Computed example of a mutant assay.
Amino acid sequence: MIKLYGTPPTRALRAMWLLNELDLAHEIVSIDLGAGEQLTPEFLALNPAAKLPVLVDGDLVVSESAAIQLYLADKYGGRFPGGGLIPATPEDRGQMYRWLFFLMTEIEAPLWRIALHSFLYAPDEQSAAEIALARRDCKRMIAIFEQHMQGRDFVVGAQVTVADFNAAYTLDWAKLEDMLDDAPALSAYLNSMYARPKAPVTIAKAMAELDA
């Protein structure tokens, strides 16, 4: 059985969404970051970077949430109604990769910088100036993605692809930071993605459940 190390609200949600959409039997293995379970020899043998998520499928170990998404879609996409989650033509695949990497490098990266300087770094390492710069950079890139999504139901083509499941989680994170107020197309798109029957919990809901 497939094992996924990591639980909401971490980036494991990206992988969980693909597992749900593909109806793949899997086991969720919780890793308590606060207790340092990501630093145990057993987990470091899976991912020396000590980060979540990690997918184990037989003898194969895959880390990095976007890589996990692409792997699942590539191997098991035939199970998805209407075909795979990776476009059929090189041209459409190129556009999917373009926006997938754009999301990871241009929108998620500043969101991660905000998280680091807000609560993950030690207090003496945190920088309000760095947070302000990250918010500026992120909003600029969100504006570009907002323009791309005008009149679109999906990131690429006429059906859902891996890029959409990545985008939904990333935009949900941006929403949590109040960055979608000037992005009506992205807000509507985000709502439509999380209205899917097999969508996972939102980041906000997962965080509320942790605090409960």
Rank of each mutant, 00 (worst) to 15 (best):
D178M: 04
K198L: 14
T40Q: 14
F102W: 07
E209Q: 12
T10Q: 02
L52Q: 04
F80A: 01
D153Y: 05
F43V: 13
V155N: 03
L22V: 05
A132I: 10
A12S: 14
P87F: 07
Y194H: 01
L13D: 07
L46M: 14
D57F: 11
A206Q: 12
E108Q: 10
H148Y: 03
N47Y: 15
Q126D: 05
E37L: 13
E21F: 14
E125P: 02
R152I: 06
R11E: 14
A168M: 05
F80V: 03
A109C: 11
Q150C: 04
T161M: 04
V56T: 13
V61D: 15
D181A: 10
L33P: 06
D124S: 06
A212N: 08
S127C: 06
T161L: 01
I203E: 00
Q126W: 07
G36W: 12
H117E: 09
A50E: 12
S30C: 03
A132Q: 15
K205N: 10
E146M: 08
I31Y: 04
D59Q: 15
I86L: 05
G34W: 07
W99E: 04
Q159G: 04
I142N: 10
N191T: 15
K75E: 11
I28P: 03
I31K: 07
F102Y: 13
H148F: 03
F154L: 05
I203G: 00
E130Q: 09
A15E: 13
A67G: 00
R136W: 06
I28K: 07
A66V: 04
A188H: 04
D92I: 01
A143Y: 02
G34F: 13
L55K: 08
Q126S: 01
H148G: 10
F119P: 00
F43Q: 14
T161S: 09
N166M: 05
P87K: 05
Q150A: 14
I2M: 10
A12T: 11
T170Q: 00
A143F: 06
K75S: 10
A128H: 07
A183D: 08
P53C: 11
W173Q: 10
Y5S: 01
G84Y: 10
L55R: 08
N20E: 11
G83T: 02
L116M: 12
L18C: 05
P81A: 09
Y71P: 11
P53V: 02
A168C: 05
G6Y: 05
F43A: 04
A199H: 00
K139M: 09
A25N: 07
G94N: 09
L176H: 09
K75G: 01
M149Y: 01
F43M: 11
M104E: 09
A129W: 03
A208W: 01
R11G: 03
T170I: 13
K51L: 07
L120Y: 09
V29W: 02
I107W: 01
G94A: 14
E64H: 10
L111G: 14
L116W: 09
E106M: 13
Y5M: 10
Q38R: 11
T10Y: 06
G77Y: 04
A206D: 09
E42S: 12
S187T: 11
A163S: 13
T40C: 14
V156L: 05
A163F: 06
F101R: 11
V54T: 05
L72H: 02
